[in-house]
Structure formats: C-alpha cells, structure tokens
Design a binder for these strands. Structure first.
Length: 481
DNA sequence: CTATGGCACGGATT
DNA sequence: AATCCGTGCCATAG
C-alpha cells in the first residue's frame, strides 16, 4: 500500500562522505538548533545568502507570497490514511534574528541546545546575580540535586564546606528555587510546591488556603483525605477538593521532571509563565474540513515540520561572479566557502526529506495515538521504522532524539514518545486505578491487566505505578464521589 | 503474612 | 558498545 510509495520516494543520494557526515549531524538538530546553525553559517560564510523569495522547503517550488506551499500543503490532498506532511516556517516559534532579548533570561532553546544537565541550565539563570564565591555555592547546591531536582544534602553542610554563612547559603538557594524550573533545589517536594504556588499567585488566581494545604496538610492531600483537610483548614469540603484539584493540576512535586504535555492551557510564549521547556519541532493537527467523501468520520491529519527560517538559502550569485576573478591567494578559500554553502543547502534539503518521510510513516502508524490518546499508542521500535524507510536505525534515532512534537490536542510531547514501549499499558493501569473502588494491590492490578491482554509481572506494575506518580495501595484511598 | 521498594541481572533496543 | 527495561529475589514495613 502506501508504504511502498514512501520507500521509493525521491532520495537524493549522498555524494561524498562529508555530505553524509553533515546530513547526519543536521538530522539530529532540533529546529531551534538548526536556526543557530544556519545563522552562524550566514554570518561566517560570504557565499551563503538568504533570499527573501520563498521556495517551498519540501518540494522546492517557488512560492508567490508568504505562508505554506499551496501544493505541498493542500488540505484536499489529505485523507484519513494519507496525512499531509510538509515543512514550513512558523514565525511564532522562532526569535527574530539579531535581537537577543536580555541576557538574564535564558530562553528555552538554550536548555535543549547547549546544555544537557539541569545544573548548568539553572546555574546560567542565577549566576549573573551572584558574586563569584556565591556562584560556587550555587554550583555546589545544583550538583547535589537528586534526579527529581530536590536537594537531599542538608544546606548547612554545603554552607560549611563552602565556608559561607548559612544565611548566605539560604539566599542563594532561594534564588535557585525561583529559577526555572520553579522549585528546583528545594529540600522537599512540599517546599518546591510552595515556591511554585508563590510564583503562580503573581500571575493567576490561586484558591485561598492552597499554600496552607500544602504546608500543613500535604499528607492529607496526597492521601485524598479531603474531609480531614477541610476540617484542618476550616473550609468547606467543596473548597478542599478544589484545592486538591488545583494542586494536582498546577504544581509539580518533582521540579526536574519536565512535565511534558500535561496542562495544555499555557503552551506558547516561552517567557516563564510555567515551565515550558520545549518548542515543538513538529506540529500535528486535525483537518476537519475538506472531507466530503468520508463525511465527518475520520479527520485527516496535517503534519508541519518547523523550518527555522523563511525564504530560500542559496549561493550568492555575486559571490559566484567574484569567484571567477578571484585573486590567486583567495581562490582556494572562496571555493571552499562555496562548496560548504552548497553542502549545507543540500543537507538541509535531505534533512527535510528524511523528516517528512519519517513523520508520514509515524502519523500513519500512530494515528490512533495521535487522535485518541496514550492508551492507543502502538508499541513501535525505531528499528522497525528504519527498516520500512530503508534507513539505518541510527538515522532514525538521530532524527527522533531531542525533538518535540505538538499533538492536535495541544500537548507538547517528546517525539520519542511515539516509541514508548509501555505507555499503553501504563495508561490502562492508570484507568484501572481511577476506576477502582478499593485500593488494589500491585499483584491484583497485574491480574486485571492480564485480563486485558497485557502480561506484566507484579514488579513491573510497581514500576509503572511509580512512573505515573500513583501512590502504593496502602496510601491510596477510595475516590468517593 | 502480604505488599512494596531496592538491587542487580539478562535480553532487547539504540 | 552503551543504555534501557522487565523481572526475579530479598529485605523491610505494615
């Protein structure tokens, strides 16, 4: 079927080994990183120029105005089992060239682009406001964080080691806690959530007594003992539940655990607000209209792959001309520049081509997941995709890793989620727990899952439960309605 | 005694 | 070759 057409698609074969190497390295870049790459190349290589005139990044056709290519992006061409996949430029996701807005605010791209560790990411935010010796304290704190972003080491110990007073250490810590992700470095989940509440309160309405609830009634809260909580705070049961809902939805007890895709309300605008660490590289949306044949039945999907620049990259014709009459001593360098520019252009095209092919296949295979949610994710390996596309598995890995995709429901998720082997089981598990009338033990859950066709060991249920942040049975409480 | 979490091993995946 | 993941075994808490 369609798969055949995919694999026999146009494939610009790599010509040189240099080409191959660069294609690979471009493929693993997120669109934000590609933007940096292209900008630096534009700045350093006189042969390369960015033409305002717009060619479609997918099919290379010359476009008249702005906006996506009318051919590649023709909604009519899409059907339920043939998604529309193309590359396009989306202003809102990229910072305009040249304007580096403020030094102190480290933008979301930097997190993915340059640093890999949480410690570095946070340190950058706070370093500017601290004198040298206090930077060391900050670094020490940040390096002592556990994987949830909480500080297990007593602060006194760090203060003593760094030979600063406890109050100074406290000051530094406070600064860290107020950096993104909010609450990092707190000694406990509880305190992290308090910080988050405090900051949240500045921009939006927070239910009264929420902080008291976190501060004093945390265990009541986590055990769903709303009645007792209400009594403790002196509020109505309804308010108590409202607080619980708010806390569950807006606060994150583990600051380091990036909350991909939950609470979709506030996605855009990378300025603080809430921790949105990633801008999507791929956007998938539903095409409701233009489906007269199948009626309202099955919406077609549209997949946009974000291109970081508008316009067309090409070798500057002036440069070409100049090269003809280049002085002897410069000629070789200029030739090199030209080659490199051509190479970059070609590689970007190939990158696009690969991404388009891969995304088309992925949206076909994971259609149900995209439209209907986690429990419909089909188990899939990168290797399988590689085989279908006749690419090396490492190519798929590179294309997938570190990229983010926005789903039709507005959630932003890592592209790697498409390859999660256990997500559907985990969400089945979540459903079971939600529906349970009485806390079920892990082995009981294991048996229930088996009835649904998922054979998982009891031990594994425990792990999934942890991943989903579900408490063990004896700490759970029947969710009364 | 039952339920759960820690450690570590082996096979699959990348 | 390195990493991730499911699982079994054992210690510990309730």
């Amino acid at each position: 079927m369609l798969i055949h057409r995919l694999s026999t698609n146009v494939r610009t074969a790599p010509t040189t080994t240099a080409h191959l190497a660069q294609t690979m390295s471009l493929l693993e870049l997120t669109s934000a990183e590609l933007q940096q790459r292209v900008e630096s190349e534009l700045a350093n290589n006189p042969a390369l120029e960015l033409l305002e005139e717009n060619h479609c990044p997918t099919c290379n056709r010359l476009l008249r105005g702005r906006g996506p290519c009318p051919v590649c992006c023709n909604p009519r061409s899409a059907t339920a089992d043939n998604p529309l996949v193309y590359c396009t430029h989306r202003e809102e996701f990229f910072t305009p060239r040249g304007s580096h807005a403020g030094e102190e605010e480290v933008s979301a791209e930097d997190y993915t682009a340059e640093t890999t560790t949480l410690a570095e990411f946070v340190l950058r935010q706070v370093a500017a406001e601290l004198p040298r010796n206090e930077q060391l304290v900050a670094a020490h704190i940040l390096n002592s964080l556990d994987e949830d972003g909480l500080l297990q080491t007593p602060l006194v110990e760090i203060a003593r080691y760094q030979r600063v007073s406890l109050s100074v250490a406290r000051k530094v810590l406070s600064l860290i806690q107020h950096a993104e992700p909010l609450g990092v470095g707190s000694p406990s989940s509880q305190e992290a959530m308090l910080v988050q509440l405090e900051v949240l309160a500045e921009s939006q309405a927070v239910p009264p007594f929420a902080s008291e609830a976190v501060a004093q009634g945390m265990d009541l809260l986590s055990h769903h003992k709303y009645g007792e909580l209400a009594r403790l705070l002196g509020v109505s049961l309804k308010d108590s539940k409202e607080i619980a809902r708010f806390v569950a939805q807006n606060l994150n007890p583990f600051p380091a655990r990036a909350h991909w895709g939950d609470s979709a309300a506030h996605n855009n605008s990378h300025r603080s607000g809430e921790g949105v660490y990633y801008t999507p590289d791929v956007i998938i949306s539903k095409l409701m209209n233009a489906d007269k044949t199948t009626g309202s039945q099955e919406p077609a999907l549209m997949v946009e792959i974000a291109m970081p620049y508008a316009g067309t990259l090409r070798v500057n014709p002036m440069f070409r001309k100049a090269l003809q009459e280049a002085p002897e001593n410069k000629r070789e360098d200029w030739m090199k520049d030209k080659e490199q520019a051509l190479l970059l252009i070609k590689c970007i095209q190939q990158r696009n081509n690969t991404l388009v092919r891969m995304m088309r296949l992925l949206t076909i295979l994971q259609r149900n997941f995209i439209l209907h949610g986690d429990e419909h994710l089909a188990p899939l390996t990168r290797a399988a995709i590689a085989e279908m596309l006749e690419l090396h598995e490492s190519t798929i890995s590179r294309a997938v890793n570190d990229k983010a995709v926005q789903l039709p429901n507005g959630h932003i998720a890592p592209l790697a989620k498409f390859f999660d082997r256990s997500l559907h089981i985990r969400s089945a598990l979540k459903l079971i727990v939600e529906k349970e009338t009485r806390p079920l033990s892990d082995s009981a859950i294991s048996k229930l899952l088996e009835k649904e066709g998922f054979v998982v060991a009891r031990r594994t249920v425990a792990k999934y439960r942890m991943m989903e942040g579900i408490l063990p049975a004896h700490l759970r409480r029947a969710t009364a309605i």
